[in-house]
Simulated scan of single mutants.
Amino acid sequence: MTRLTLRSMIDDASKGMKKAVTEAMRGVDHIATTTDCWSVRRWSFIGVTAHWIDPDSLKRCSAALACKQLRGSHTVDVLANALDIHSEFEIRGKIQRTTTDNGSNFIKAFQVFGEDENNNAVGSDGDASQPGEDQEGGEEVEFVDVSVLLNEDDGLEFQLPKHQRCACHLLNLIATVDAQKATSNEAYKKVYRSTFGKCNALWNKCGRSTLAAETVEDACSLQLLRPNATRWKSLFLEQAVERLLRIIKDKGEGTIRVLCTDLKVSM
């Protein structure tokens, strides 16, 4: 089977699934979506899912709308363009909320392109003049709500739904911030910064250099995993520190010493 034939089969299957999901959501009036970005081996991706209640059976339904690569920086324009997937499935006017994490890029994207009335409020500070006040002469002046003009859907601008910040991610942030309070103890703070300064040097080196990543994999038969700022558990329990300890246990501390020497970072 040639690569071209395989690609054609995948495209046909994707079109069939897209049509089926679109038909399933056609009779639904209220839909919620979620989206997230992540990186794997220096490649970035975005995923979008839809969730709704079937009006006949009252069952909860979910479907994946997109999982595609993001190229370049995750700017507000790039994210808004990726989330325009809602239009492809003909659900743009049905979405009640789109849930994301608390990443600044997502928050700004919804502030710039979202329809949330809290983001588009005009004159909320009470400074706006009322019609007819402080006007010289008797000439009438027509006041126009600028937010209405900015939010008009002329097909040339993205329009995102109302935004919902993920509650689980908020709890993760609370746990992270509270954990940092332990550094108020000077003795702990000294050890903490010394240890994680060296760990971060290793993680950053492997994240920025393909050669460094290959050196680690050759020596340890494993890759180092970098902490994810949006998932506090990734630092200790699931990825970064656990992987370092596993390498030391399986390969010995000498292996880490050689790596640090080769990569020119502090042991």
Rank of each mutant, 00 (worst) to 15 (best):
K190P: 02
D84V: 04
N204P: 02
I247H: 06
G254D: 04
S87Y: 03
F45S: 06
L160H: 01
I174E: 07
V21K: 06
K59V: 05
W43K: 14
T34C: 13
I91K: 02
R226D: 01
H51S: 05
K68F: 06
E90H: 09
E139T: 01
R60W: 05
A13K: 14
E117Q: 10
E238I: 12
D127L: 12
Y188M: 08
S87V: 05
D178M: 11
G126I: 07
Q135A: 11
K59S: 10
V177W: 07
M1L: 14
Q159V: 02
Q239V: 05
I247Y: 05
S87T: 10
T261V: 11
D36M: 00
F158W: 13
N228E: 12
R208D: 10
S124I: 02
H169A: 00
C168M: 03
Q180D: 14
S73V: 09
Q239L: 13
V191S: 12
E142M: 12
G137A: 05
A109K: 05
A201I: 04
N118L: 15
C260A: 04
M267Y: 14
A187G: 08
K19H: 05
K251C: 13
Q159I: 04
F158C: 15
D145V: 10
A20E: 10
R246H: 13
A20Y: 02
E140G: 02
H86E: 11
K181L: 15
D127C: 10
L259K: 01
L156Q: 15
G197H: 06
D36T: 00
L170Y: 03
K108Q: 12
I53C: 12
E88K: 14
D134Y: 14
C166S: 05
A213T: 08
L222T: 04
A167E: 09
L202V: 08
L263Y: 04
Q180H: 11
G137M: 05
K94T: 07
Q159N: 12
V141M: 10
E242V: 02
E152H: 12
R26P: 01
K19A: 01
G114N: 06
V78N: 04
Q159Y: 13
K18T: 00
N204G: 15
T261M: 13
S129N: 05
G16T: 09
I95F: 08
E157Q: 13
F110I: 08
G93Q: 00
E140N: 10
H163R: 06
D153V: 07
